Computed example of a mutant assay.
Amino acid sequence: MEEYENIYVEEGNGIAFITINRPEKLNALNKATIAELHEAFEDCDKDPEIRAIVVTGSGDKAFVAGADISEFAGFSVKEGGALAAKGQQLLFDFVENLSTPIIAAVNGFALGGGLELAMACHFRVASSNARMGLPEVSLGVIPGYGGTQRLPQLVGKGKAMEMIMTAGMVGAEEARAWGLVNHVVAPEELPGFCESLAQKISKNSPVAIAAAIHAVNAGFRYDTDGFKTEIEAFSACFGTEDFKEGTTAFLKKRKAEFPGR
């Protein structure tokens, strides 16, 4: 695995662990970190040995405490638009549509761009001390990395409006009750719990999982017929080696060994 300045990547048993490593900045996302994350996710997605990814923050205080405000405090309207567009393309949309499933292990604060990164992941597990929010309006701006779109999808329009307009934070249990996170565990249990979920995922067909991610995401796009996308993805599965292996293993009552093709 490549060496990075702001993140580190570990791999084992088909699982990649990507850790954002800027603890002195509470793992805030700057341009360099966003670029490195893009590269790491892309490399993991290309590696046939990696069947799932867990992303988290270093230390015990923060997943990602937001974007690095010092980088854009003096931006013009044009520069602000370019910042959001490039960030969404390079990381947030890229993560959401990655073929390899990504679990966000939310350890501590996930604020602004940090919560937006967690929401772009395929699902989220929080430590019991996690705190989540989109505080952008307190800075005179709005979420620009997909927060105004993904938060309503997860918690509903009313709750999303409340979170965005108050700029407040919610705790882990409240986030679970709202559907913002799937599970809440003790901080010391978070890495192992996410690894166990990733291992369950990794036993299934990576081709089918990629197709499922594509089909589910299609249902949230205004310009796409999700049902049509599902039919197309379903039918494509019939031409894969994974389908042949999965059905053969089932009929022969043995464990499937998916080749990922």
Rank of each mutant, 00 (worst) to 15 (best):
G108S: 01
L83Q: 09
A82K: 15
A105F: 01
L90C: 07
A120K: 06
K78H: 12
P101F: 09
A85V: 11
N97S: 14
N97Q: 12
S99L: 04
A85F: 11
K78C: 08
A84L: 11
A82P: 01
L83W: 13
Q89Y: 10
G112E: 10
L98Q: 05
F123S: 13
G114I: 05
F109Y: 15
A82N: 11
G81W: 13
A82Q: 09
M119V: 12
H122M: 01
A118T: 05
L83H: 12
P101I: 02
F92C: 05
A110C: 01
A110Q: 08
G81Y: 12
I103D: 02
G87F: 11
F94Q: 14
G80T: 13
L83R: 14
G108K: 04
N107I: 00
A110N: 04
L98N: 15
A118W: 12
P101Y: 02
L117A: 03
A120F: 04
L91E: 01
E116M: 04
F92M: 05
L91M: 04
N107C: 00
L98R: 10
C121T: 14
I103L: 06
G113T: 06
V95W: 02
L117V: 06
Q88T: 08
G81D: 13
Q89L: 12
L90H: 03
C121I: 07
Q88S: 10
A118F: 03
S99I: 11
A110E: 10
A82F: 00
G80L: 13
C121W: 10
L117R: 04
P101D: 01
G112M: 03
G112R: 00
V95E: 04
A104H: 01
N97D: 13
G80P: 08
F123W: 15
L91C: 03
P101W: 00
F109I: 13
G108A: 06
E116S: 09
I102Y: 00
E96C: 03
G87W: 02
V95H: 03
Q89C: 07
G112S: 15
H122V: 05
L90K: 07
A105S: 09
E79Y: 05
T100K: 01
G112Y: 11
K86S: 13
N107K: 02
G113W: 02
M119L: 11
T100E: 02
N107G: 02
M119F: 08
H122P: 03
K78R: 14
I103G: 06
L91D: 01
I103C: 02
V106E: 02
N97K: 13
L115K: 07
L91N: 00
A85M: 09
L91A: 00
A84V: 14
Q88Y: 06
E116D: 08
V106L: 03
Q88M: 15
G108F: 00
A85I: 07
E96S: 14
E96K: 12
G87M: 04
M119E: 08
G114E: 09
L90T: 14
T100Y: 00
G112C: 14
L98H: 12
I102G: 02
